[in-house]
Design a protein around this nucleic acid. Structure first.
Lengths: 324, 324
DNA sequence: TCAAAAGTGTTATCCTTACACCCATGT
DNA sequence: ACATGGGTGTAAGGATAACACTTTTGA
């Protein structure tokens, strides 16, 4: 009988220089060199809960303590390359007939991207893994080669075309920033992302360099899928829970807050309407102090009124889009 | 080394006579007789994905095929009573030193509550398990004894009082229908629900009969917690995805649709504003036919325009509250 | 004719969107 | 002075919430 092993993976998000970054671990697999998420096995004897286990091994691997943590999803498909079974992080796929690995993905938010100088671990902008997800400067150029490839895949089939159109905002369809996972899964299904061929033990598809670049960097195992789940979940959550503040320092300017939300949601926001919404929600409070380091006129510093969480039900921020 | 076992549990929701009902299985445990959710073990050899395994054993246990299925959460805490390990449904707790059971909860929606006449399985209104969650006829009477018990538990501590107030709408605080799980967990933490004492191997607390009734019927294992997760998730999802229609027959009246949404959300809605919102969203289409069986004036039948799902991003229904 | 449920009109208010302009600092 | 980013006023349009009333059937 096949053994079951449970692996825990963490998508640790932080903001560095106004960019959303993710904690990754480098893996040398055979010749190639891929990034992965920090992960570890769940030990049914030593760990009382998943969350405690997760906090323990992330602290161990990266030297800082997680704040906000939330379970994302449990992945158990056989066809998909499941996370690695052993703690040694060898980068080998689980052997056929060996243990079946189930992976529980978590999202964690860190108040700042402290560089841990830990061997093999690094903060990387998640735009690297999903170049098509960043619409802050308008429609990302990565979408052009992707659109061509998707149309070739759809090959006139109406169902495929409809999905591609909706998810990738083709033909003037509106962009929905939350459907990150569905987009990644479509690219996987279409055989475009590197992981698709790898999971079928096939050689990488022949692709022009522009397309290869547009499809982003692959990750080991199903980690890019977990990352897509995390990004989608976080983008949704921004709107109905005040989670952004978990990523901000104690005192911040409103522009820094807006840049953070924009970096996460991947869309440009309307400055004044963003501020008005903030004000109405009474989520922040001016500190009277100024931040001189902004380049132009100094900005007032604000703090998150954490006490509102105990006083009343509180939703997140609205995302007033800036028309392009 | 402790073995790991993965159990799958399904919260199958349907509408019967305008009430939201859940598929349950009866368990005779020692003297007492508790309800539970349909569940089964995940077999790493036989099952390619969780979802396929779930569909298979629900069909086997209840004779119908699930439509909409969504993963809820994976529960792995040790202190909590985890789901049973074997398929025999003996109702015994997993033995100390035996297998550690992890349970993956799923939400499924069925278009109608077909009575399967299967031994031991039954559809039960979920209000039985959460009497405090039904605000359709105003503040539920179950809240009075619960409020008293919670205040006794809070014992003047501001943090406890604030949580109880917010979650249970004490002192005129607004009711938030989505926070079902948090409410159940507070009652568990306060030691009020039956499961709390049971999980600590303590005898049931001494409680007046009104309080006992107000706290609802307990379930085996952590099934009531999974049910609370499902109800909360479904209530949230109603608003941003058109999932209600998974519970409706092909043709339905607008009043039946409204009653369904009310039964799920547990709040009364404003008739005309509900209809106006439906109309604006272009989610339904009149069929011209009438339903004569309504008691008063016959109502027009409508259908869900399923095709909009492929045409544009579509959100759920707004819940225009009816002030009490 | 009356109860029961279906179905509609209308208004005040609030929120969202979109426009453009002024302010304080460093170079 | 002017570039750079911070910070504000205002009005149009649309969505929501709240008011009550008419219509069509069965008993």
């Amino acid at each position: 009988m096949t053994m079951l092993v449970i692996g825990l993976s963490a998508v640790v998000v932080a903001i560095r220089d106004g960019e959303a970054v993710v904690l990754t671990v480098r893996h040398k697999t055979g010749g190639a060199d891929f990034a992965g998420l920090p992960f570890g096995p769940f030990d049914p004897d030593g760990h009382r809960t998943f969350e405690l286990a997760l906090r323990a091994f992330v602290t161990e691997q990266t030297r800082f303590n997680l704040g906000y943590v939330e379970q994302l999803y449990t992945f158990g498909d056989k066809g998909r390359d499941a996370p690695l079974a052993d703690v040694g992080l060898t980068g080998e796929r689980p052997r056929v007939g060996g243990a079946r690995v189930i992976s529980v993905g978590y999202l964690a938010l860190a108040p700042a991207a402290v560089d841990t100088h830990f061997p093999g671990s690094a903060w990387r902008p998640w735009a690297r893994f999903f170049p098509w997800e960043d619409w802050r400067a308008g429609r990302p150029p990565a979408l052009a080669p992707i659109e061509t490839a998707l149309r070739a895949w759809a090959d006139g089939q109406p169902a495929r075309l409809a999905r591609a159109r909706l998810l990738f905002a083709l033909d003037q369809a509106p962009w929905n920033e939350e459907r990150v996972l569905e987009r990644y899964e479509l690219l996987y299904e279409a055989g475009l992302v590197h992981e698709a061929a790898r999971d079928r033990d096939e050689p990488p598809a022949e692709q022009p360099d522009v397309l290869k670049a547009a499809l982003g960097e692959p990750m080991i195992s199903d980690h890019r899928r977990i990352l897509a789940t995390a990004l989608g979940r976080l983008r949704g959550k921004l709107k109905y829970r005040p989670v952004v503040f978990e990523l901000m320092p104690e005192a911040f300017t409103l522009s820094a807050l807006q840049r953070t939300v924009e970096a996460l949601a991947g869309v440009p926001l309307h400055k004044q309407n963003f501020r008005r919404a903030l004000e109405r929600a009474e989520l922040v409070e001016g500190l009277g102090r100024l931040d001189a380091e902004t380049g132009g006129r100094p900005a007032e510093l604000f703090r998150f009124r954490r006490e509102v969480l105990d006083a009343r039900p509180v939703s997140g921020l609205s995302l007033p889009l800036l028309r392009d």
